[in-house]
Amino acid sequence: MAKATITFEDINVTVTVPAGTRVIEVSEKVGSAITYGCREGDCGTCLMKVTDGWNNLTEPSVLEDKVLRDNMAGKHNRLACQAQALGGKICVKPA
């Protein structure tokens, strides 16, 4: 199975994950400061900054795009509960 690595820069931890893993599935277990609210892409609490490997994540859905806009997200921001790792190297931190 294809693998990806997600580095949580705020805590300096890298996790090797199977492709398709959502960031939410990993970040709480390792103790990153990305916080969650609804966990279903609606509230925008889990906004994170993707500092490397933007293209190694699934593209944001139309709904995620709307939530990002509503939350005045910067251009390198994603919702950790929605973004899935596709492969390669990804670096994230709380927005």
Binding site: T7, N12, V13, T14, V15, T16, V17, K29, V30
Partner: peptide, 18 residues
């Protein structure tokens, strides 16, 4: 050490996470 940026990057396998 973490505060001063002296702690090494920790690498974990997803399967090992509780």
């Amino acid at each position: 050490q973490e505060l001063m940026g002296l702690r090494e990057n920790k690498i974990i396998n997803f399967a090992d996470l509780a």
